[in-house]
Amino acid sequence: MRLVANARMYSVNPAAAATWKELFAWLSSGSGISLDVIDHAFPLPLSELWSRRDLASAFMCGFPFVLAAHRPRPVAAPVPASALIPGKAVYATRIVVRADSRFASLEDTFGGRLGFTVEDSQSGYNALRHHLLPYYRQCGKRLYRESVGPLFTPRRVIEALLSGGIDAGPLDRYALDLMIRHQPDLARQVRVVATTEPTPIPFLVAGSDCPGEVIAALQATFAKFDHDSECADLRDRLCLAAFAPVAIEDYEIFARWDAEARDAGYDQPG
């Protein structure tokens, strides 16, 4: 049986998508595992991708992973070149506004329209809500006049922001780095007003029935990424330093954040 790979979560633009295909070609060659890189673009549900029996490598957010009744098998976690904790497989959410807006701080955006991606997203929902929770408790009421979503993807958050559909929105920090790497003009269009605390980053998973020897071969190859001379250009274009083993226990914090917000009556960020 041929196995499949997909990097939809971080295929943030055509250039990034093409580079991920190169990464999977390197992974296939180095591991000896034949991989077909498949398209599974929005609006197809990510849950269908993660449940595929022939899946060998696809990005999955840690929040739906910890909530899943039947979890896929962890393969490897990316280590961003600009990780907030150097050398660690972590990321954060950047809350952004239009660069030409009047908002100088996060508090300035209160009373406006806040975008979110989807309810089972860590960066686009759970981390955003956790960051806003202290303000909600202090204020005793919702912070924004409108919550706009689901917007589903970081690209759609930016589109809503630039079109005036929202005043502020959450962006996966690593996804934004990738966007700016391949679309430098974007850095002049958006401005960061807040950054959440770092948490474990989305990681690559395989199907729950994927053979252990396949996963071991993929993991052994990923472990070479940081020092393989053939990957120097890939590391640059993917804004990555390395791939690391997945520490599943670190992701349980996402379920605690979710429970904390719900217990406070703050189900949806806004």
Score class of each variant (00 low, 15 high):
2 R>Y: 00
6 N>T: 05
9 M>V: 14
11 S>F: 00
12 V>P: 01
16 A>R: 08
22 E>F: 01
23 L>K: 02
27 L>S: 03
31 S>Q: 03
32 G>D: 06
33 I>W: 02
37 V>A: 07
38 I>K: 07
40 H>F: 03
45 P>A: 02
48 E>V: 10
51 S>E: 14
53 R>L: 10
53 R>A: 15
56 A>W: 03
57 S>I: 11
59 F>P: 10
61 C>F: 10
63 F>P: 07
65 F>G: 11
70 H>S: 15
77 A>P: 07
78 P>V: 08
79 V>E: 06
81 A>P: 07
82 S>R: 14
82 S>M: 06
82 S>T: 15
84 L>C: 01
86 P>M: 01
88 K>R: 15
89 A>F: 02
90 V>P: 01
90 V>K: 03
92 A>Y: 06
94 R>Y: 05
96 V>F: 00
97 V>A: 02
97 V>H: 01
102 R>S: 12
104 A>L: 10
108 D>M: 02
108 D>L: 01
111 G>C: 06
113 R>E: 07
114 L>M: 15
118 V>Y: 05
119 E>K: 11
129 R>S: 09
133 L>H: 14
134 P>G: 08
135 Y>W: 10
141 K>Y: 04
141 K>L: 04
144 Y>K: 09
150 P>S: 08
150 P>H: 02
152 F>C: 13
153 T>L: 04
156 R>F: 03
159 E>F: 11
163 S>P: 04
163 S>E: 12
165 G>V: 07
166 I>E: 07
168 A>V: 10
171 L>E: 13
175 A>N: 12
175 A>V: 10
176 L>M: 12
178 L>W: 07
178 L>Y: 07
178 L>V: 09
179 M>C: 10
180 I>L: 03
180 I>W: 00
182 H>C: 09
184 P>V: 11
184 P>K: 02
184 P>A: 06
185 D>K: 10
188 R>P: 01
189 Q>A: 14
190 V>S: 02
193 V>A: 02
193 V>P: 01
193 V>I: 12
196 T>N: 05
196 T>R: 03
210 C>K: 07
212 G>H: 05
216 A>N: 12
216 A>V: 08
217 A>V: 09
221 T>Q: 12
224 K>N: 12
224 K>F: 02
224 K>T: 15
227 H>Q: 11
230 E>K: 10
232 A>H: 08
232 A>K: 10
236 D>K: 13
237 R>F: 04
239 C>Y: 06
243 F>V: 09
243 F>H: 07
248 I>H: 00
250 D>F: 00
250 D>M: 02
252 E>P: 02
252 E>D: 14
255 A>Y: 00
255 A>S: 15
256 R>E: 15
257 W>T: 05
257 W>L: 14
259 A>S: 12
259 A>H: 11
262 R>A: 08
263 D>K: 13
266 Y>G: 09
268 Q>H: 11
269 P>Y: 00
270 G>A: 10
